[in-house]
Design a protein around this nucleic acid. Structure first.
Lengths: 192, 192
DNA sequence: TTACAATACGACCGATCGTGCTATTATTTC
DNA sequence: GAAATAATAGCACGATCGGTCGTATTGTAA
């Protein structure tokens, strides 16, 4: 009862690490099996289909995101400090200080935003949840007058997410060293 | 001398349209050949390798971008109107009012930002050129005091590109109707 | 220790991948 | 028009794809 769960976890972990680089479709069962140290059929037995594996990978990514980005920020005081922690943790997540390879969601969204199906649905759902939660934290900061700006929280969330996305491209494609400073400057301007 | 060029162009056009949805790697020669109405080997003869085809596709994307986004904006007066035109044309390009499927560069960047090679190099080069040109237009608007804000043009370009990227996700994955208004609101705030 | 279920393996399927080689057409040039 | 050249089709290749099946091995509970 125990062995199966742990190897399954190892498979999903490895698959997520590969997915960040190759995309969800780019991960092949054969290559993944070799990486994990299993036979292809032995690996496949844990999932009834490749899509099921992809969904498990996506779920694992959400879990990691919660652990590394959201939960640490929830330990900060509500209001602007928490918003700032969410943003900075997100930058760290993108920069891959915890794991290597950038933000899996950005990769997956580009891959599946025009492919209807279970993965796109789960992706959209998790993105919506994240945006709602993020906007909620921003709303709290606004109620406390820690964000002087007059705008709805969703607009602020929209702009902050944009700054993070620009950060990702600048960092991972262009390799610009100053892009973290740019992202933080954008944060200050957006939340003031 | 003429026939080859025109069929080659048709191949690249079709390949670009497919690439926006499936990614550059996702386009298969067999499927593409069927779509164009050629045999697989007949199509392949135009390019010595798949990578050469991908590079041609990327070049075509740059050409379309110049035609649909940059050149129309250059007809506007220099300064803020031109910056605004660049931004709005970029939103249109993402929304796919001209062609269907979103911004190919965003897709390609996610696909190749961690895969060293000719494609990544060309992608980075074109992105740098675009950012430099965009920042230059912004700089002109600043010199004319049409952008009151005190910041370097690259910072403003960084934030505007971020707004456009957030627009892309909101539109194509989440299907939010109000995201164009959000992007334009971000533009006004960033350029003031 | 035995018995049963969970787990993993190897071989294999049809399909498709990118890529050559060889004819056979179209097209261009003289 | 013929000769030369470019363009396309047919076919096959080794590799790999996701997926299936029967069997062996292993872990677990009695």
């Amino acid at each position: 009862m125990k062995k199966g769960q742990s190897t399954r976890q190892m498979i999903v972990d490895t698959a997520l690490n590969q997915s960040v680089r190759l995309g969800l479709e780019g991960v092949s069962l054969g290559n993944l099996a070799e990486d994990v140290g299993l036979s292809k059929s032995g690996l496949f037995a844990h999932f009834k289909s490749k899509e099921a594996l992809q969904l498990a990978v996506l779920e694992e990514a959400v879990g990691r995101y919660m652990r590394l980005v959201v939960e640490p920020a929830l330990k900060k005081p509500a209001g602007l400090p928490r918003v700032r922690a969410l943003f900075e943790n997100y930058l760290d997540w993108i920069a891959g200080e915890h794991e290597a390879g950038g933000c899996p969601f950005v990769t997956f969204v580009q891959e599946f935003d025009d492919r209807p199906g279970a993965i796109r649905d789960m992706l959209a759902k998790s993105q919506r949840q994240w945006r709602v939660g993020f906007a909620s934290a921003i709303g709290t900061a606004m109620e406390r007058k820690e964000i002087a700006r007059r705008a709805d929280p969703e607009q602020v969330a929209f702009e902050l997410i944009g700054a993070a996305l620009a950060f990702q491209t600048s960092l991972r494609l262009l390799g610009e060293r100053g892009c973290r400073v740019r992202a933080l400057a954008a944060f200050d301007r957006i939340t003031s």
